[in-house]
């Protein structure tokens, strides 16, 4: 049976009609036109569909849409503020942390969650935390570097490289 699902998407309230079996990824991509989260496998393996649910990274392909009722969902579309890229986005860009970019929305959301929890992760902690996100273009080394420079404050809003 169809139901109305209400939640906060990238800071704004949304209402959308969903069925009980639809996933958050289905609803974001097919019903709300939010295509940042990618469908890499639809199986929970690749991490390209990662979004933050109340600040925690979840696989939107494994999340039943109705479970996010009343909660906050952040996708890559909500990362930049007023057209100003998030420090992680700037660092990914300048350090070449992607090739095709398909994994990038998921990588950015996982990286944000990592730094929110642990602002100065070690290289090992980055590798462990990010290991649920796959990149077929093999940009891992550049992604680690980008996360490290953000952790070091290089792209901080004040003083750092803009």
């Amino acid at each position: 049976m169809k139901q109305i699902l209400s939640f906060i998407l990238n800071g704004s309230p949304v209402d959308v009609i969903v069925t009980p079996t639809e996933t958050l990824l289905d609803v974001l991509r097919e019903k709300l036109g939010v295509t940042g989260p990618k469908r890499g496998c639809d199986d929970g393996d690749c991490g390209t569909c990662t979004v933050l649910l109340d600040g925690e990274p979840v696989r939107s392909c494994l999340t039943i849409a109705l479970t996010v009722a009343g909660r906050e969902v952040l996708t890559v579309e909500g990362l930049s503020t007023d057209g100003d890229l998030h420090p992680l986005q700037k660092a990914f860009h300048e350090h070449g942390a992607f090739q095709c970019g398909f994994c990038t929305p998921g990588m950015l959301m996982s990286a944000k969650a990592l730094l929110d929890h642990n602002p100065t992760p070690s290289r090992t902690e980055i590798r462990e935390y990010m290991s649920g996100n796959l990149c077929r273009c093999g940009s891992y080394e550049e992604i680690i570097e980008a996360i490290q420079v953000v952790a070091a404050g290089e792209y901080a809003p004040s003083g750092g490289k803009e």
Binding site: C41, D43, D45, C46, R123, T124, I126, R127, E128, M130, S131, G132, N133, L134, R136, G138, Y140, E141, I143, I144
Partner: peptide
């Protein structure tokens, strides 16, 4: 059919140190 059957290297499979 999926990345569990066909395992791509993850961050953890990449070398601790990669030089180029």
């Amino acid at each position: 059919e999926n990345f569990s059957d066909y395992a791509l290297p993850t961050f953890l499979d990449y070398p601790e140190e990669t030089l180029w």
